[in-house]
Nucleic acid binder design. Structure first.
Lengths: 349, 349
DNA sequence: GCCGGTGTAGCAAGCGCTTTCTACAAGGTG
DNA sequence: CACCTTGTAGAAAGCGCTTGCTACACCGGC
């Protein structure tokens, strides 16, 4: 029924071994023979059996990419960039690799299960993107898995994620703290003193780091923070909308709202607008990430640009062993403050 | 080094066959034996060798999802929904499957290559999302591949994509034509007579269908179209921005702009605003898809809501054989007109 | 003209799992 | 009490490929 290596070998009048070697190109084969084999492959429309090949060679050409939310461009952009570098179709690399984008939905169990699935497939590499969950047992479980993967020869890279202790995984970490600090410093520089903060899910590292940066900026400016000014939520617009209404209820005198990311900021804008407040005259709004739509917000969003595509590409190259990992296996990738229309001097109260 | 089935068998004092049967659960095994095997698996921290298993069983648990642009939420939302249904971790289905999201970037060659790669992996199912490329030879090549995949036992489902002729692939098609027609009819109903249209890439089916719907509405209303009113571009905001400037240059008297999708519409809004035109007082703008950010545009975007998540979920279920394919293998999924703030009556000229 | 490279190709032993077929006990039946 | 189900487990034959080792020409050099 299906064409196998042996069929091709028979047709080309060579041994299966020779066909395999022609296909893999890692062994000298006379030009004439290769020619003949290639023709046979073509004529029979032969397609290599991936599992068989992976079994025999003890490696596969699968590369796993774990994302928290595939519907979020934040991850989509990184995943696309990674995929572009791992030599999938169109990539420069010779061997064609299949990128496997796995959507964990932010769930620790699914993250672990996907890691196991990838281990089972003997993935060539795994890239984990986005913030990690801070639960200690889970972190330990992930670290253990990563170690096992590494032992089995799978290259592990973290992209936009803090380093995993006790692991030799390469980490390209976003400087969320620094970015957040610069952002809030900008707001403080404009004269704001009462700033609401809409955080992401409590247990996410990203959430904590950004919040810490925010608070560091406040502390540096000697601004005391009211605990009512912080609300936790999810990384989506709905959350931003609801949190903003909550903040407004808690303290209507806020002059600025800093959001965990751009989507949240968009939701915040909607809530403010519906509450009859102008941006930035009445309330300034700031986001984080600088996703493509942020510049189209009205007014356009002040935010911190994260080089998602660049970081993803780099992670992809490191995962493929085409680029040296950073010294110490850890690199911090900085964001850039983008001052736009959504922030301004506070209203005089 | 690595733990194999045989190791587990030895430890549990049973034959490898029994271990395999316990793990696959498709053969009666005495409770006590199963218990013992499971314990051994746990103690040895055994992980099945995917390729070996796939080779022996002649099937794999990989499911491919082809998308045109993984960074675009349009595809992200569908991919997420599909993945949620194919029984990956967290899904209800028993057997855990690995979703493989492949980013074709809209390139026909990569589409074909990915299809081959999936064929090579003996994927359990393949879901192709988004508009197809209309180039005849390419369409034929894809159809041939899909046939071959189906022959090899891979279930093929098209989601948001027109049916593939000479193929028994199940197709859940979006009614782009109908949606576009309703949208333009809405604009005509408001009194617009000079409507610019920003189309997507020429060769995409989605582009053609939406444009046809638009023109059908114009024709039905007896409005004659000026060829200068249509500009082709890509499905991103930049394209919308540039195309709008072009349209404005060609005919400043346009009172409405219909965009190929929401991202394009956002770009159009930016261009209009920069040109000093108010939305919708001076120019109405309409999008397509109703992505999450569309409601946050200012003014919020009139658009056609496509049930991306629902369609994706259904496609996922069909791909897993958990839902009957629609009669004839083809279903048309309708969009819903969402009238919002970006469209209004035209200015009196 | 014999010998040791050098360049190619084949042989055959797995890789780790699934599954058919067979084997054996235990229990029910005439 | 012999015989046949029924339930459960093992033996072994692959699945299709890779690769270490071996084999054979053919070449040039002494």
């Amino acid at each position: 029924m299906t064409v196998t290596l042996a069929d091709v070998a028979a047709r080309a009048q060579v041994s299966p071994a020779t066909v395999s070697r022609v296909l893999n190109g890692n062994y000298p084969v006379a030009a004439a023979t290769r020619e003949r084999v290639l023709r046979a492959v073509d004529e029979l429309d032969y397609v290599l059996n991936g599992p068989a090949s992976a079994l025999a060679a003890a490696t596969s050409d699968l590369v796993g990419i774990l994302v928290n939310d595939i519907a979020d461009p934040f991850f989509g952009i990184m995943a696309g960039a990674i995929q572009g570098e791992i030599g999938g179709p169109g990539g420069r690399a010779g061997g064609e690799r299949l990128a496997v984008v796995c959507n964990t939905g932010g769930s620790p169990e699914r993250e672990l299960t996907y890691l196991t699935l990838l281990q089972r497939q003997r993935a060539a590499a795994v890239v984990l993107t986005g913030g990690a969950v801070e639960d200690a047992p889970h972190a330990a479980a992930v670290a253990a898995k990563l170690r096992k993967l590494a032992d089995a020869g799978t290259r592990v890279v973290l992209c936009g994620r803090p380093p995993a202790p006790d692991t030799d995984a390469v980490a390209l970490t976003f400087d969320n703290r620094g970015g957040a600090r610069a952002l809030t410093a900008h707001l403080l520089g404009l004269g704001h003193r009462r700033l609401g903060y809409i955080a992401g899910p409590v247990e996410r590292t990203t959430t904590r780091h950004r919040l810490e940066g925010h608070r560091a900026a406040l502390a540096a400016a000697g601004v005391e923070e009211d605990p009512r000014w912080t609300v936790y939520g999810r990384y989506d617009r709905r959350s931003g909308y609801e949190a903003t209404l909550e903040l407004l209820r808690r303290d209507p005198s806020l002059t600025a709202i800093v959001a965990a990311n751009d989507s949240v900021a968009l939701g915040a804008c909607a809530a403010l607008r519906e509450s009859g407040l102008r941006i930035p005259e009445d309330v300034s709004v700031a986001g984080f990430d600088d996703l493509p739509f942020s510049i189209d917000a009205v007014p356009s969003l002040t935010t911190v640009r994260l080089p998602l595509a660049e970081a993803g590409a780099r992670a992809g190259r490191v995962a493929m062993g085409r680029e040296e990992p950073p010294p110490g296996g850890i690199a911090s990738v900085r964001g850039e403050l983008m001052v736009r229309g959504s922030t301004g001097v506070p209203r005089v109260s």
